[in-house]
């Protein structure tokens, strides 16, 4: 049987505002691809949240800042969730 691991999502400003919380934890099957997890998360929150994460071709936006346990995920497509972790995700900001 596939074991599940808890994944904590931490959302920065705009995303936290949409979700109504800065953090949520979900169990996922061990080995789930990061993009698949993010796609499920985006589908669950829908609307603006989804738009901020994925482009019109359903590809993860390259300018998102995603970190796993404090490390920038440069190539999210290549990553899988193999152990419990914290995923921090923020949309780019440039206010001056």
């Amino acid at each position: 049987m596939e074991s599940e691991i808890p994944i904590t999502m931490t959302y920065a400003g705009q995303l936290a505002g949409i979700v109504g919380a800065s953090e949520e934890t979900k169990p996922v099957p061990q080995g789930t691809a990061l993009t698949s997890f993010l796609r499920d998360t985006a589908n669950r929150h829908g609307g603006r949240f989804q738009e901020l994460l994925f482009d019109e071709n359903k590809q993860l936006r390259r300018a998102l800042v995603i970190s796993i346990n404090g490390e920038h995920a440069l190539d999210p497509e290549a990553l899988s969730l193999t152990r419990p972790c914290e995923i921090f995700i923020m949309t780019p900001i440039a206010g001056g």
């Binding site: 920065a12 400003g13 800065s22 800042v65 970190s67 404090g70 490390e71 920038h72 440069l74 921090f88 923020m90």
Partner: peptide, 20 residues
């Protein structure tokens, strides 16, 4: 490292950034 500050909670986070 990128310093990220959330003033709603006064949280400071450091994210290790890698070169592409």
């Amino acid at each position: 490292e990128m310093l990220y500050v959330d003033t709603l909670t006064m949280g400071l986070r450091k994210i290790t950034i890698s070169r592409r």
